[in-house]
């Protein structure tokens, strides 16, 4: 156990040093002074993929000549920041959607005059509105994290995680008598978080128990509430790699003192990261997931300029799924490319 913990610390330290070397330029929202045009493709929603979409925006728009003022460009609004936001020229101001669920609701509640797509880190759910296409973007995985040097062990089973979030296991020594008798402090991200919804589904918890606290922004270990030796917090593996290996951090969008931990599935210890990428076995387990961009089906299948623009960006033959620049962006932000990129699941 101690050896594994030491290895985790070593990996975290190495990742931090790598991140220092390759520290990237953080981008957020449309750049200051830029208001997307009415015809541009504008998205809101998930925190997990926001930095990736910001990078896509910069790189995709760079492929369009500055003199081209008619081809729709790609813009993405972060999950957090000032609110309300006016997403594009002529749009109705809306409260800034924070998370996949909120982004999808905003997509449904508005038209393409305001929102064209929603970033989603969760799959379609039966409660989602009909007529939406969840367009596959990439593969990610979700594991649990804990404070480096804290009381948490290096690994937990899915059942143990379920017991923690059901509040039937409340102290570490209930998991292993050699662990401290300190009270476990399970946290979940904000209510509309796709990572929250996915994690609860993966561990089979429909409604978390009363010992579970909600609120920290997903994938941000910098929240002071998470700086605790007994905290347990779900975390996107890709986002963690983007922060620690890709160097894509801000003062808040960073892992803080959290490190990723292993999950035991069917008796096998699954490690979320191998050689600085998402471990394949972990990605293929119940803790692996696909992340999406969600669009309105009627617009996705339309042959008008707007539908063509959506396909040109998100479609299986579009820029995200076929360009080298997008593939490099995916890798830099920790995601795994999927051959099914651009495939839509209709709600």
């Amino acid at each position: 156990m101690r050896k594994t913990a030491a290895k985790l610390l070593t990996v975290a330290a190495l990742a931090t040093s790598v991140a220092t070397v390759f520290s990237g330029t953080a981008v957020a929202d449309p750049a200051a002074g830029v208001t997307p045009a009415a015809q541009d493709i504008v998205g809101v929603g998930s925190d997990t993929t926001q930095v990736l979409l910001n990078q896509f925006s910069a790189d995709y728009n760079a492929t369009l000549p500055g003199t081209d003022t008619t081809t729709p460009r790609l813009y993405s609004w972060d999950a957090t920041g000032s609110s309300p936001i006016t997403t594009k020229t002529g749009a109705t101001p809306i409260a800034r959607p924070n998370g996949s669920g909120a982004g999808i609701k905003a997509l449904v509640a508005n038209t393409s005059a305001t929102v064209d797509f929603a970033r989603s880190s969760r799959a379609p759910q039966p409660t989602d509105a009909h007529g939406l296409d969840f367009v596959a973007l990439a593969k990610d995985a979700v594991t649990w994290s804990a404070k480096s040097g804290g009381d948490a062990p290096a690994q937990l089973t899915a059942d143990q995680l379920a017991a923690i979030y059901n509040c039937t296991t409340t102290t570490w020594n209930q998991i292993d008598p050699s662990l401290p008798a300190n009270t476990i402090k399970p946290f979940l991200p904000q209510a509309d978080s796709g990572t929250r919804a996915f994690f609860l589904g993966a561990i089979g918890v429909a409604t978390p128990g009363s010992c579970v606290a909600s609120g920290p922004e997903e994938n941000e270990g910098t929240d002071s509430r998470l700086n605790d030796p007994d905290v347990v917090f779900p975390y996107s593996v890709a986002h963690f790699l983007g922060q620690t290996v890709g160097g894509h951090t801000t003062t808040t969008d960073a892992p803080g003192n959290l490190t990723l931990r292993n999950i035991v599935v069917n008796g096998t210890v699954l490690t979320p990261v191998t050689n600085n990428v998402i471990d394949t076995n972990f990605a293929n387990s119940q803790f692996g997931r696909v992340v999406y961009n969600v669009v309105r089906d009627a617009e996705w299948t339309a042959t008008d300029p707007h539908g063509q623009a959506l396909q040109a960006i998100f479609g299986s033959s579009g820029w995200i799924c076929t360009s080298t620049a997008a593939a490099n962006d995916l890798a830099s932000y920790g995601f795994l490319a999927t051959p099914a990129c651009g495939v839509a699941t209709l709600t």
Partner: peptide, 29 residues
């Protein structure tokens, strides 16, 4: 579905070859 390809094993081989890939507007349900 892992490769998102139609594959086939050519005569005299045991290794599948990726032949064809879905494209255009793709929907799963």
């Amino acid at each position: 579905a892992d490769k998102w390809r139609l594959t086939g094993v050519p005569d005299g081989s045991t290794t599948p070859v990726s032949l064809l890939k879905p494209a255009g507007i793709e929907r799963s349900a």
